[in-house]
Amino acid sequence: MIELEDVSVSYGDRPVFGDVSLNLPQGSFHFLTGPSGAGKTTLLRLCYLARRPDRGRVSLFGEPAAALDRDGVSALRRRVGVVHQDCQFVDHLSVAENVLLPVMVSGGDVAAAEADMKDLLSWVGLDHAAERLPTELSGGERQRAALARAVILSPDVILADEPTGNVDWEMSLRIIGLLVELNKLGKTILCATHDLSLIRQVKSRTSARVLRLRSGALELAGSDL
């Protein structure tokens, strides 16, 4: 679904990672971990084409990203659901409208999608908050609303950047549980988190693999986790 081949990224003179390769097959579940500043967010940004690599090749759904124009990037983004670390809401729109935003921008039938939106809000436990503004939500509620928005177009791939960054342990487990449910529906998941204890807790219940970014390289974590 998503393939990174020998990609390198640097910010100015500071290299973030070099010659990293990653292949996310359909239906896979990967955690991406590593210390702060290791480049987890940058790697995710490569995956939804918010950044181009300095070197190397990125492909989404078999299409090389380098060949895409801006409209092509927009079209591919609609096939990838992203839960951003800071949620990225439009603050004057209600939670319901924010969840429907991908439908609106894709020219879909908003009225027809309202039933899906209600189901999704119910699934993430926010059916009571549909008319509230994002600023009125708690950290956990915001992350769950962002997850609902990420899956409204039923994308094949879901990328989550520290979705449990600002929530308590119970809520973290609940959010990861939602990702596990999506994976069981056949969705490809890549979830960046620095919370190793959370990974340990969830890993035993899933077939998730753990990737670790360290010292500019990406490696598969094993029993040393």
């Binding site: 409209d71 927009s74 983004r77 992203v82 951003h84 809401f89 439009v90 935003l101 928005r149 177009l153």
Partner: peptide, 16 residues
Amino acid sequence: GRIIDVLRLVGASDRF
């Protein structure tokens, strides 16, 4: 500006 950023992130085209 933030609205424009969010719209791009969720797949809005420049034309939209």
